[in-house]
């Protein structure tokens, strides 16, 4: 067997993926995938239809968990941003975590809007309506899309990190507004199924367990995605650093040649 340089190097690089942290990450991914599969199986085939929604109840096991992950992700972004801004805890770790969680949050917020729109068409009869919950969630999506765009504005990394941290914290103000909108204002959207302030869940047996599983499943997938996205952020920073060192070396070589 001919071992090329690239193949020979592979064990070297993949040895980093055998660290305990990576094992936890892989385990999270595997358990997350399995629980998403179980949620889908229970949600589509095993759980009974409900009295008021019939078969249309089935998006219950997907839409609220996805929405919860969006809130959670933006919460992690805001918390990491606070830790970055606070001098005693300032570290590039928090900036990377905020970036990683923010991107995953935008994905899940977008999926909250899409799955909600589909569920709305099936149950309410409309794809969209401008009630407070829908409007504030759409705003949340655009605010964090803006956060991701702001992160792309070329600037000194320290400045960028501070600027994005402030933006992430400001944008987070819309999370409690979106969550509490169904209690503060009259909306078409129903009130919170699980995370309601009364802490009362009106979901029957297996349906409730499937919903709980859905929450756990998508939270695990979120954690796994953020772990990978964080590693990408860290590696991209290193690549930029090395690219810069190479550019400087080339510039110096050009200078010598001239």
């Amino acid at each position: 067997m001919i071992i090329t340089r690239r193949q020979a190097r592979r064990p070297l690089t993949s040895s980093s993926s055998r660290r305990p942290g990576s094992l936890v990450r892989t385990a999270t991914g595997v358990v997350g995938l399995a629980s998403v599969a179980a949620t889908v199986w229970l949600g589509l085939w095993v759980t009974p239809p409900s009295t008021n929604l019939g078969q249309l109840v089935r998006l219950l096991y997907i839409h609220p968990p996805v929405a919860w992950v969006a809130y959670l992700a933006f919460g992690v972004t805001a918390a990491a941003s606070l830790l970055y801004l606070w001098r005693r805890t300032r570290s590039v770790v928090w900036d990377r975590l905020a970036a990683a969680s923010g991107e995953v949050g935008v994905l899940f917020c977008g999926l909250t809007l899409v799955s909600g729109s589909i569920w709305g068409k099936a149950t309410w009869g409309v794809w969209w309506t401008w009630d407070a919950r829908l409007t504030s969630t759409a705003l949340l999506f655009v605010l964090y899309l803006g956060y991701l765009a702001l992160r792309r504005v070329p600037s000194d990394p320290g400045t960028r990190a501070k600027r994005s941290a402030v933006a992430a914290i400001l944008a987070f103000a819309d999370v409690p507004i979106s969550y509490l909108s169904v209690y503060w204002w009259k909306t078409l959207h129903q009130t919170g199924t699980v995370l309601n302030p009364q802490r009362q869940v009106h979901v029957h047996g297996l349906m409730a367990w499937t919903l709980l599983l859905g929450f756990c499943a998508f939270t695990l997938v979120y954690a796994w995605l953020v772990a990978h996205r964080y590693a990408v952020e860290a590696l991209a920073e290193r690549q930029q650093g090395e690219g810069l060192a190479r550019a400087l070396a080339e510039r110096r070589a050009e200078g010598r040649a001239a």
């Binding site: 998403v36 949600g43 589509l44 249309l56 089935r58 994905l107 999926l111 589909i118 068409k121 997938v221």
Partner: peptide
Amino acid sequence: MSGLIDAGYSVVLVSVAAYSAAVVY
């Protein structure tokens, strides 16, 4: 109408899978 339910599941699962694949790649 249950086609909408399937569509809801599909869009979420496919999007998360596609994003995951992109990030891992």
